[in-house]
Design a protein around this nucleic acid. Structure first.
Length: 805
RNA sequence: GCUGAUGUGGUGGAAUGGCAGACACCGGGGACUUAAAAUCCCCUGCCCUGACCGGCGUGCGGGUUCGAGUCCCGCCAUCAGCACCA
């Protein structure tokens, strides 16, 4: 073929992108006739910095699958939008005194343009943004449904508070005691907070994991985060006070080994009965010390147990009536169980260390360890335990003790979760207003559905109040309202929802984004849901992924959606590190701007590179030279046009190569093994070069396979050579000829005692039973055996023969 | 400490228990060129050798197997998540 223009990515990419936009090439079809495929990638927060190469990798994975599915005849929904509420826009607003709405719109436009320059096949007609009123109307609607169903409650408890951001954080947002936004130390403050009762859904969230296709690491992380344990609540009487001290234990079998009790320093019973405690000043001093300790100190001081004995408090072990001392110590947390424990030093290492330090008795109740050395947590025969002494294992003695406790009314079975309820309000401006009204006579009342959306009012000053109030609290016209129930004067809730609210249901909006009667029509949900394949980052596993499963399961329970789980399958991508092997960050100066790569090499090279750089799920450092290698590969493909022959069909000598490449690429895309799929195509191109020519159908097969990864160059080659009628994006995905995958002769390794000694050409259809005779007849085999006697011959068809002497 | 993952050339990484290092990067050599770039071809795990032959090699130590990067047991290291959770 003559007159081939040079490969000019800039020119052909913008040409095709413009065509796709005008043609609406990637809009999902309205008809529900075809089989559907809903591919979802986590929509971005539209930050001012624009796109990161990490976004490109995160989206490219399912981009390939989505394009392949279209070619396979599916109706594909591959949507994109913006998770646009959040602190960075607000902080920037404070700094520049610009409305966050303006900043957000500008950033969204920037992001959208950048995404289009990569050539992603998103359906832009369905774009959503969580900060637009027609979207957050429905976020508020779902919140009201949660409220109606008693899954929203207000409580004054110790909460995670970030003094820098001046905001209350959920447990999920303050992992490791650090604020997720600014990474400063989070402090514990008593505060009135709105909670969503996610713990009510703990079991459903656990059970749901058995029905979905998530990687084991993700399932495990969610299981750990939910942290379900079974045990017993037991009441201990305290001498001289009417109330019982309730504890939670997973080891009721060790009750006879209890020699003391420990309460969290913040336990409310202490204040209630302070006059009973003769060393109260010591208690107060210890409480102060604990409150001042940072999270870091608390975790670093694990070895050294501290605490104070409560003078005047004595507890009674309910199973044997023994009097035991009571302590406060900060190794017991107020936030888990009941904030008090029974201590069994013989069989719990923490209790053991505490007992050693404070000189408390240690009573062994399970045989098997050496309690002179350390606590024994294993299984064994019961001793010193009255009626339990007949048992020789945990399971049986726990069952027996539970029966006893319930019969005597001393306690009962119980379940505990490490997961806490979701602290849901933020004292900030740029979020969904919580649609609740505080009425002096009716209490808390939901805003009527027909008044949604409750719009975010304009404010002059976005700075949070020093009194821990949201900026909305300063807008009298917003705050003062009438009670929807009694019509009397009332005040609005002024806090807003957290970052994670809008993203907890966005996948539902995509199926019907312009509906103003419902968040989505039942009909569209029935067709599109669940999401068939969802890809995103590991950092969202204990937040977004858990929160959205919770909301969706709730909507299922009240009959609003048709599937219990939102995502049938979830995958994740590995990080792209800087070329120095460190995490990319502005301060390290190792950030790669994807648009720089696009302008230098083209979007196809960038897409190819992020998928070729290694295992999709593993972290890998950026390498500029390897990017050039990817460009080189596309150049080589372009130049294949120079060696295009007029021949049709696939030539006999390449039938195996072409067909096995089709098979490999088709399978590898499904397994997200993009790197090996691309390697297979590189091998095929090398084969074409070695031969020096390529037929039209051979080239056609190659560009069809490569099209999902590098759509621009392949569409251009198709047009220049007229290989395929119509655009590749609508062409049928190539199929392979099974018979072409079988060669007549195959090379096998020749091993002696497991060591490779040579290679041998063998007919492919050689049978196991004929193998010995065949090989012993071959001279190279006899030579290898020499005068040794063959004891055994291992024959693995197509692979090797191993002669054991 | 618990849970999950990972450990392979100078580098990124391939390999249903069956020829370790596919594919690519870097490096070396050659062709083309006045020259350079680009391109094309060849070499490229380590040791020995002029070359062949050979030996050693998948974090470490054992084991199972005709055969182990892959399976089992015990370590070490790295990454991620959880963590005084009773």
């Amino acid at each position: 073929m003559s007159n081939i223009p040079p490969y000019n990515p800039m020119e052909i990419e913008s040409k095709w992108q413009q065509h796709w936009e005008e043609d609406q090439s990637f809009a999902a079809e309205a008809s529900h006739e075809k089989p559907k495929f809903y591919a979802l990638v986590e929509f971005p927060y539209p930050s001012g910095a624009g796109m990161h190469v990490g976004h490109i990798k995160a989206y490219s994975g399912l981009e390939v699958v989505a394009r392949k599915r279209r070619m396979q005849g599916y109706n594909v929904l591959f949507p994109m939008g913006f998770d646009s509420f959040g602190l960075p826009a607000e902080n920037y607003a404070i700094k520049t005194n610009t409305h966050p709405h303006i900043i957000t719109t500008k950033n969204e436009n920037h992001f959208r343009n950048q995404l289009k320059k990569i050539g992603f096949s998103f359906d832009w007609s369905r774009e959503i943004s969580t900060s637009r009123p027609d979207y957050y109307k429905w976020t508020q609607w779902i919140f009201l449904k949660l409220f109606e169903n008693n899954l929203v409650f207000r409580a004054k408890t110790l909460v995670n508070y970030c003094p820098h951001c001046k905001v209350v954080l959920s447990n999920e947002d303050s992992q490791g005691g650090k604020c997720d936004v600014c990474h400063s130390d989070v402090v514990q403050l008593p505060k009135d907070v709105w909670y969503l009762r996610i713990t009510e859904y703990a079991d459903k969230l656990l059970e749901g994991l058995d029905t979905v296709e998530y990687p084991e690491s993700i399932k495990q992380q969610q299981v750990t985060w939910i942290g379900r344990s079974t045990g017993a609540f037991v009441n201990f009487a305290i001498d001289g006070i009417p109330e019982k001290l309730e504890i939670y234990t997973t080891r009721p079998d060790t009750l006879f080994g209890v020699t003391f009790m420990v309460m969290a320093p913040e336990h409310p019973l202490l204040d209630q009965y302070r006059e009973k405690i003769s060393n109260w000043s010591e208690v107060e001093k210890y409480r102060d010390e604990c409150a001042r300790k940072t999270e870091f100190e608390r975790t670093q001081l694990v070895k050294d147990k501290t605490g104070v004995r409560l003078e005047g408090f004595e507890a009674i072990n309910p199973v044997n009536g023994k009097k035991i001392p009571v302590f406060i110590a900060d190794y017991v947390m107020m936030g888990y169980g009941t904030g008090a424990i029974m201590a069994v030093p013989a069989h719990d290492q923490r209790d053991y260390e505490f007992a050693k330090k404070f000189g408390v008795d240690i009573i062994e109740v399970i045989k098997g360890g050496d309690i002179g050395e350390c606590a024994y947590t294993g299984d064994g025969a019961m001793i010193n335990s009255d009626f339990l002494n007949v048992y020789d294992n945990k399971k049986a003695s726990i069952a027996a003790m539970l029966e006893y406790l319930e019969e005597k009314g001393l306690g009962h079975k119980g379940i505990q979760y490490k997961m806490k309820d979701w602290a849901f309000n933020r004292q900030r401006y740029w979020g969904e207003p919580i649609p609740l009204v505080h009425c002096p006579s009716c209490g808390t009342v939901g805003v009527p559905y027909d008044q949604l959306p409750l719009k975010l009012p304009d404010v002059e000053n976005f700075e949070p109040g020093t009194d821990g109030q949201s900026p909305l609290a300063r807008i009298d016209s917003f705050v003062n309202c009438t009670c929807p129930r009694c019509g009397g004067s009332a005040k609005r809730e002024t806090d807003t929802m957290p970052q994670w609210a809008g993203s907890s249901w966005y996948f539902l909006r995509f199926v019907d984004p312009h509906n103003d009667q419902a968040f989505a029509s039942k009909d569209e949900m029935k067709y599109w849901m669940p999401v068939d394949w969802y890809n995103g980052g590991m950092e969202h596993v204990t937040r977004h992924l858990l929160y959205s499963r919770f909301w969706h399961r709730f909507l299922y329970d009240i009959g609003e959606v048709n599937t219990p789980e939102p995502y049938a399958k979830r995958s994740y991508q590995g990080l792209i590190l800087g070329s120095d092997g460190e995490k990319m960050s502005k301060s390290k100066g190792n950030v790669v701007d994807p648009l720089d790569i696009v302008s230098q090499y083209g979007a196809d090279t960038l897409r190819l590179y992020v998928l070729f750089m290694g295992d999709y799920t593993a972290a890998a450092p950026w390498n500029d030279d390897a990017v050039k290698g990817c460009k080189r590969f596309l150049d080589r493909i372009w130049r294949l046009m120079e060696m295009l022959s007029d021949e049709k069909g696939i030539s006999a000598d390449l039938a195996f190569d072409v067909n096995s490449c089709i098979k490999k690429v088709s399978e590898d895309y499904e397994k997200m093994k993009y790197n090996t799929a691309i390697a297979a195509m590189m091998t095929l191109v090398n084969t074409f070069y070695a031969k020096g020519s390529v037929t039209r159908d051979e080239l056609r097969a190659l560009i069809l396979l490569l099209n999902p990864v590098a759509p621009h160059i392949t569409e251009e080659i198709n047009v220049l050579c007229g290989l395929n009628e119509g655009e590749l994006l609508r062409a049928a995905w190539p199929t392979y000829d099974e018979s072409a995958l079988v060669k007549e002769m195959v090379e096998m390794a020749l091993q002696v005692n497991g060591k490779v000694r040579g290679r041998i050409q063998v007919p492919t259809d050689l049978k196991q039973e004929d193998a010995q005779e065949y090989f012993l007849g071959r001279e190279e085999v006899r030579k290898l055996i020499g005068d040794k006697t063959m004891r055994k011959l291992i024959f693995v068809p197509g692979r090797l023969i191993n002669i054991v002497c």
